[in-house]
Structure formats: C-alpha cells, structure tokens
C-alpha cells in the first residue's frame, strides 16, 4: 500500500487517456507529458500506458507500507527517500516505512510516479485518467488528498536503467513547433509575424485545460462572432482580448475563438511541462517535416516501448 501524506500543488491519477469520445464532449485527458509518463512506466517494467500519479509543481509526500519499486520521471523535483536524494529518470527500490518527498520544481511542471503493475482507479470509457471538471476517472474523479491510499501489486521487479537519449529535456522556455490553424489566415499580417517573434509568458491561469498566455497582442483582421466548432488540444486560440490561450489535454472539445496555430503531434508532450511563468515560443513547421519528425520520434521511442504513441 502507498499512502498520500501530502498532495502538494496537485496530483491526479493519469494513463494515456480516453480517445475517441470528443464528439460526445469528453476530452481525451491523460498524462499531460506522455513522454515522461511513458518512460517512468518503462523503468519499472510496465507497459508504457499503465496508470501513474501525475504530480504538479511538487510538494507531494508518500509513505510506503510495503517494499516496492518506484519510477520517477518528468520535471526535476529534487526527490528524496527518507531525506536521501534520489535521481530523476531512474527507478529505485523503496522499503516498508519509507517516505518519498517531492520538493518544488524549478524546471517544468509535472513529474510522474510509477509502480510495477500501476495504480488502480475508477475506469470510465476505458481509462482511469482523472478529468476534474466532470469528476471522471481517478479516485472518485478528484485530485489526490491527504490520507488516500492505493493498493499496489506485490510484484518483484528490478529497476531498468533508461538508455541514453530517452530522457526528455525541457526548461522553463518551452519551444513548440506548429502548423497553421484553420483561422491562421484571418490574423492581421502583423500578428502572423508576432506569433513567432517574441516568447509569450504562461500566466497563473495555466492548468490541464489550457494556458492563458501574455505577450504581444495578437489580433484578427475582423472579429466576427464565430460559430462554435470542434477544438483540439494543442490549439492556440485568440479571444477578443488579444491574449492567446493554448488548449491542453483537458481542454473543451468545442470552442468559439479563432484557432490560429496547432502544435505538431511530436511536440504535444511538452505542453505538460508549461507552468505559470514559463516562456512559450512558437515556431513554424512544414507539413512534411511535422510528419517526418513524428515518424522518426515514434520509431525511436517504440524501439524501447512497444506501441508508444505521442
């Protein structure tokens, strides 16, 4: 059993999400940084999409009531077991009575904790991913709180050492490669340039649903009342106040603001590491490059983790 002593800024149970239900208003959700989530699972011998605990910004403490193996990946949170440093992007054994603590992260936003066999949660539409706005999945559809505990599988496994190159790297300046969104051409000429020049800053309104950005004013040529239409995660939308909003994994399935950029699929995991205060820059990417990058990166990660997808 593992017990939550402190839930920190926020912690939720996540897997690879429930895809295929956007037409009914259900976003896919799932680990916001799929890459770190997947390798955290690999290091403890799990299939890449096994349920894990997603820890936001740090402050989480856990006590183990049995011996087990822990995988840790994602934002550097200066983790310690009983006050002794443990290394991020490794798996390590813990013993009954041990306490794992995560300190405040200084780079990135989310870290993932895995155990052999994963964590149990409530399954909705084939996924245990927590979606807070509708109270779906996870533990009673909510974030972890002090006193929660998870039964864990008494599986004996050895830690796996992550081969070089598989560790995700990011800083507090997140650079996202993008394709034009459906309404990109409706931006003013000036805004079409401004999107790619200065970085934006993620404001405190940054969570799993989206990041409200601050920076150059981004304006549409005309601001007509758009009919609401389908919206994808990774879309940069421009509301009437000219401060763009970046849709994340829990974003609404439909929106009524112009969709001006779309983050390429291979960079989608980086959205999970955007935190309040992060710089966010956008780059253009050619259509064929977006696909080539996706093919190469997917093949690279699949050589380690069967069936991995971004």
């Amino acid at each position: 059993m593992i017990e939550v002593l402190q839930s920190g800024t926020r912690a939720t149970l996540q897997d690879s999400g429930r895809r295929g239900h956007r037409s009914r208003g259900i976003p896919a959700s799932g680990a916001a940084d799929r890459l770190s989530f997947a390798v955290a699972n690999w290091m403890v011998g799990n299939v890449w999409n096994t349920p894990a605990i997603e820890c936001v910004l740090g402050g989480q403490h856990f006590r183990f009531h049995q011996d087990t193996l822990i995988g840790l990946a994602g934002a550097e949170m200066w983790a310690q077991v009983n006050g002794q440093n443990v290394t991020n992007y490794t798996a390590f054994p813990v013993e009954k009575g041990d306490i794992l603590t995560l300190s405040f992260s200084r780079q990135g936003c989310r870290a993932y904790i895995t155990v052999p066999g994963g964590f149990n949660g409530h399954t909705f539409l084939g996924s245990v991913s927590t979606y807070l706005p509708a109270g779906l999945g996870g533990i009673e559809g909510r974030a972890l709180k002090v006193g929660d505990h998870f039964q864990i599988h008494p599986v004996k496994r050895n830690p796996r050492k992550l081969p070089p190159g598989y560790r995700a790297t990011f800083s507090n300046h997140i650079v996202l490669r993008t394709r034009p969104g459906p309404e990109f051409e409706d931006l003013t000429q000036e805004s079409q340039r401004h999107l790619f020049i200065n970085p934006f800053i993620a404001t405190r309104n940054t969570n799993r649903m989206g990041a409200r950005l601050r920076g150059n004013r981004i304006s549409m040529r005309t601001y007509e009342d758009m009919t609401s239409g389908p919206l994808l995660p990774g879309t940069l939308q421009v509301p009437a106040d000219s401060q763009p909003v970046l849709a994340m994994t829990d974003a609404h399935c439909t929106g009524g603001y112009p969709r001006v950029l779309q983050v390429i699929t291979a960079d989608y995991w980086l959205l999970g590491q955007v935190r309040p205060g992060s710089k966010v820059s956008f780059q253009r990417c050619f259509s064929r490059d977006a696909i080539d990058i996706l093919k190469r990166r997917t093949a690279f990660y699949r050589s380690l983790m069967d069936g991995f997808s971004f």
Binding site: R19, G20, R22, S23, T227, S228, G229, P230, C253, T254
Partner: peptide, 13 residues
C-alpha cells in the same frame, strides 16, 4: 479516429 461535428464544420482526426 474521431469524427466531431459542429454546426457548420466537421473535424476528422
């Protein structure tokens, strides 16, 4: 993979 309808648009993933 996904077909999401809107009032005057249709999204195909």
């Amino acid at each position: 993979i996904e077909v999401v309808s809107g009032y005057d648009s249709l999204l195909l993933e």
